[in-house]
């Protein structure tokens, strides 16, 4: 076996969670269809977790399997299910789907164009960004990053010094520079559009967030030789004072 054969990595995947509130299968299917029709690209083969925790009645294996089949019919990719720890059903190992832990999660409710119906919903859909399983520690650099050097951080990057002209710092998360930024700084290099760059003294050759970049000539017209932060607002870079 060599190191080239495989690699194990932690990963974060955005999933859709279907919270079942009543065992009313027909209503659930109708409601789902409606939701899917609003944003079909989003739901096409979307990974789905079925959560029976809040169902008003115990869910039988039969009902569960019919629900899974129904979801698959609608083009959803069921990857597992959840329930509360105290109420794990006896058919747990017969359903052939993994029982997933109830992770702490940030929830984003999907906005729907049409107002929600007043009556009790049969189904609530949320996308859930799982908490990072492998949290990337912040990388700390205490010496100047010199011309010709490059620093890469898989999480956030903190430089308690300067970044020289001709040097490059990259991070999958945010970049904090407690000195002058004279070189290139690229945050959110794996696509995190919420990443930001902070620096005590903006004199950069280039700043970029999730691939959106700005060069020094443009920066000079906004903030130069002063404290600044760089963020992405509606896919456009914004340079703001700190």
């Amino acid at each position: 076996m060599s190191d080239n054969d495989f690699r194990l990595k932690g990963s974060v995947v955005t999933t859709v969670v279907l919270e079942v509130k009543t065992p009313n299968l027909e209503q659930i299917k109708l409601g789902l269809k409606e939701k899917i029709a609003q944003v079909p690209q989003f739901f096409n083969q979307a990974p789905l977790i079925i959560d029976i925790n809040q169902c008003s009645e115990p869910v039988s294996l039969d009902l569960f399997q019919t629900l899974v089949a129904g979801c698959r019919e609608l083009g959803l990719a069921v990857i597992g299910w959840r329930t509360s720890e105290g109420e794990i059903p006896s058919w747990r190992f017969d359903c052939e789907l993994p029982l997933l832990p109830n992770a702490n999660s940030r929830q984003i409710n999907i906005k729907s164009e049409t107002p929600a119906p007043a009556k009790d919903p049969h189904v609530v859909i949320k996308t859930v960004v799982e908490e990072r399983e492998v949290s990337q520690p912040t990388k700390l650099i205490t010496k100047p990053v010199r011309s010709g050097q490059q620093v890469y951080a898989p999480g956030d990057l903190v430089v308690v010094s300067q970044v020289s002209a001709g040097a490059e710092v990259l991070a999958e998360g945010n970049i904090h520079i407690y000195g002058a930024l004279r070189g290139r700084a690229l945050a959110g290099v794996k696509g995190d559009t919420s990443a930001r760059i902070f620096c005590k003294n903006m004199e950069a050759e280039l700043v970029a967030i999730a691939g959106n970049f700005m060069l020094s000539d443009a920066l000079q017209k906004i903030i130069w030789k002063d404290a600044a932060q760089v963020l992405l607002v509606d896919e456009a870079l914004e340079i703001a004072s700190l």
């Binding site: 010496k143 100047p144 990053v145 010199r146 010709g148 050097q149 020289s164 002209a165 001709g166």
Partner: peptide
């Protein structure tokens, strides 16, 4: 100055 900065990087690494 730029070349000196590069040399400083090499001294460090």
């Amino acid at each position: 100055v730029r070349d000196s900065d590069r040399i400083l990087g090499i001294l460090q690494s």
